[in-house]
Amino acid sequence: MRVSAVALILACLVTAAPAHGPTPQKIEATATIAAPPGRVWGLVSDFAGIERWHPAVATSEGSGGTANGATRAVTLKRGGVLRESLDEYDAGRMTYSYRLSEPDLAALPVSSYSATITVTPDGAGAKVAWFGRFYRGDTGNEPPEELSDAAGRAAMKAYVETGLAGLKAKAEGGS
């Protein structure tokens, strides 16, 4: 009898347990660019200069250059500002990592993210990889659709893929 009472209590606790919170999401995209890696890195390497190549960015202002802890405020053409900070910068390896330091759900429906951009040689051209991890905009157990995992994935995918397409056009076209 004692065993079945314990089993009953455990069963009640398990069924009464709240749903788990958000799980980390990932985005990874690459672009092959018909331009020397040095030219591509010349565009990407300016942490505060993302407006030079990302079509969705209206302006970008930064401080601290490429030192760890440098910051940038990226204003999107459709509204919202991404406030980001540089975590790690390696010009020799043509890579840097950064993170969202202050969420703006009008800019992207995510509560946080970290990302890495890397340029590598690819034959006569370059390959750019952009990888990120993020959490949806509403980290509660039942987020509204516009702040859900799906909304976060769609927005991050569009932002990264648009950026890579813009970088490719800029590096290959030279304009």
Score class of each variant (00 low, 15 high):
124 A>I: 07
84 E>L: 13
116 T>Y: 01
166 G>S: 09
130 W>V: 02
172 E>A: 01
35 A>D: 00
136 R>C: 08
174 G>N: 07
174 G>W: 08
157 K>E: 14
89 Y>N: 05
45 S>T: 09
129 A>W: 00
26 K>Y: 15
102 E>A: 08
55 P>D: 12
154 A>K: 10
161 E>A: 04
2 R>P: 03
32 T>D: 14
52 R>I: 00
36 P>R: 14
86 L>C: 15
58 A>N: 05
5 A>R: 10
30 T>I: 10
160 V>W: 13
17 A>S: 14
71 T>D: 01
60 S>L: 03
120 T>W: 02
4 S>E: 11
170 K>A: 03
71 T>F: 01
121 P>R: 08
40 V>H: 09
80 G>D: 03
25 Q>W: 02
72 R>L: 04
53 W>E: 00
55 P>L: 12
174 G>H: 09
106 A>N: 11
66 T>F: 05
66 T>W: 04
130 W>P: 03
113 Y>L: 08
26 K>L: 15
51 E>Q: 10
75 T>M: 12
74 V>C: 10
37 P>Y: 10
18 P>M: 13
17 A>H: 11
70 A>Q: 11
129 A>E: 05
151 A>R: 03
118 T>Q: 15
3 V>I: 13
134 F>K: 08
26 K>H: 15
152 G>H: 05
120 T>E: 14
165 A>G: 03
88 E>D: 15
118 T>E: 15
33 I>G: 04
158 A>I: 03
35 A>V: 00
36 P>F: 06
32 T>R: 14
104 D>M: 07
84 E>K: 11
36 P>E: 15
142 E>H: 10
98 Y>A: 02
133 R>V: 11
102 E>Y: 01
23 T>I: 04
78 R>L: 02
155 A>S: 11
128 V>E: 06
117 I>M: 08
91 A>L: 04
172 E>G: 01
139 T>M: 15
98 Y>Q: 03
11 A>H: 06
54 H>A: 08
